[in-house]
Design a protein around this nucleic acid. Structure first.
Lengths: 229, 229
DNA sequence: TTATAAAAGATAGTAACACTATCTTTGCAA
DNA sequence: TTGCAAAGATAGTGTTACTATCTTTTATAA
């Protein structure tokens, strides 16, 4: 049984759907590799075209500009991760166990999902850690948000927020705690590897410790405010 | 009594010290205004030169490139904030009260400090929220870190980490909690104003609520792991 | 008062970037 | 076989990100 996993993307993210052609898939595949290797600042469509063996103009037929492509990649990642969360927490009753699974999925190195042939989730995860916030930290954020470009991120945040409420219906800040978990899973990873004195994991460089930190953070909050509301 | 506040900056941050000349001060003043208005992506030295009434080449005598200027602005901001933290928590004995003061300083709109004539801290604060992380989220982060360009940020983080330990010497993640407070004070603010569904403060848009959230987060963690170590 | 050196201004130039346009070729489908 | 969409090839334009050089202004020390 061979299963292909296809993620339906918002059409405003692209000019031509990259999943519908060979060139489109190459653009996704190679842009992930290129950005991972050289960073988003140095990334240009011309360089990407060279890497693929096509032309600049060809890539512009798929994406308006490199920022849109970054938003596409992040949207794809968050959609995939929400699917992972849904899948991995399926049939789990205990909301605490579910939330722990989410923290694990967010903070731990992902493995390449072979069902998505042109996306290496492991590398994409690394990109999202370093470049992900640049998708929305712009002057255009409100416009882009009106086009629902950040919906996958917001959806995932909502899913996690609901799990938090399942754990403790009286907790006052489920959405903020959810976005904190998501961002900190990545930031602590970046700090651990690049600015280690900003974390307590600089020596071990062990992602498992980030998981423990986040669990401590989350479940302390959820326990302490359980009574009264 | 007129007091001027001067912050000693790492010399690797600039080619010529902007605090030592009128043009240098204009560069700082106008770059803050320009970036606040139009965002860092659209910012160029040519446009800045026009705003100031000087030439592009003139600005290149002070800063290698716009990324270095951003690092300078963030370093300045964190230095200034560490000074604020030290000043405002001076003579406070209770570490819990100190930590609450820090959260307040981080998460609340700052007022312009008139002792720094060419820096509007209130606007700079807004810039740091949106653009601050871009200073270190790059491929060059390790090199820049070796030049100690992020020292002010790391110093502030260390100060807060020590306060955390004062509150609870057994807490296991003081540095990670410190960096979490710093980043989340800004991210929750950005989300509240731009992607409100990622927070619980979208309706009120009240910074005071971010303070309450962070206090809840921090002191839950510090209380719950107090025994045993 | 003059010499002089540093800062700033003026101007020019280049390679790369961020696109847009147009024309041709290829591949497939009715 | 014709016809159309995708891709390739090529060219062009304004902007960005610098570097270089030459001149003028300004502060100050002899």
């Amino acid at each position: 049984m061979e299963i292909q996993l296809q993620i339906k993307m918002n059409e405003k993210l692209f000019l031509r759907d990259p999943e519908q052609s060979e060139l489109g898939k190459k653009i996704i595949l190679h842009s992930i590799e290129w950005i991972h290797k050289n960073g988003f600042e140095a990334f240009t469509f011309k360089k990407l075209a060279e890497a693929i063996g096509t032309t600049e103009a060809g890539i512009y037929r798929y994406f308006e500009n490199k920022h849109r492509l970054l938003i596409y990649l992040t949207a794809w990642y968050w959609s995939w991760l929400e699917y992972q969360v849904t899948f991995q927490t399926n049939n789990i009753k205990d909301p605490v166990v579910k939330l722990k699974m989410v923290i694990h999925l967010l903070a731990t190195m992902v493995e390449d999902d072979i069902r998505t042939s042109y996306v290496d989730e492991s590398i994409l995860h690394q990109i999202i850690i370093t470049e992900g916030t640049k998708a929305y930290l712009t002057k255009r954020v409100s416009e882009d948000n009106k086009d629902h470009l950040f919906k996958p991120y917001k959806d995932l945040c909502a899913v996690i927020g609901n799990m938090i409420l399942e754990c403790n219906p009286h907790y006052k800040y489920p959405k903020s705690l959810a976005s904190t978990i998501i961002e900190m899973a990545h930031f602590q990873n970046f700090f651990m590897n690049n600015l280690p004195s900003l974390t307590d994991f600089g020596k071990s460089k062990d992602e498992a410790e980030i998981v423990l930190f986040l669990e401590d953070l989350v479940f302390s909050s959820l326990q302490s405010s359980s009574v009264g509301g």
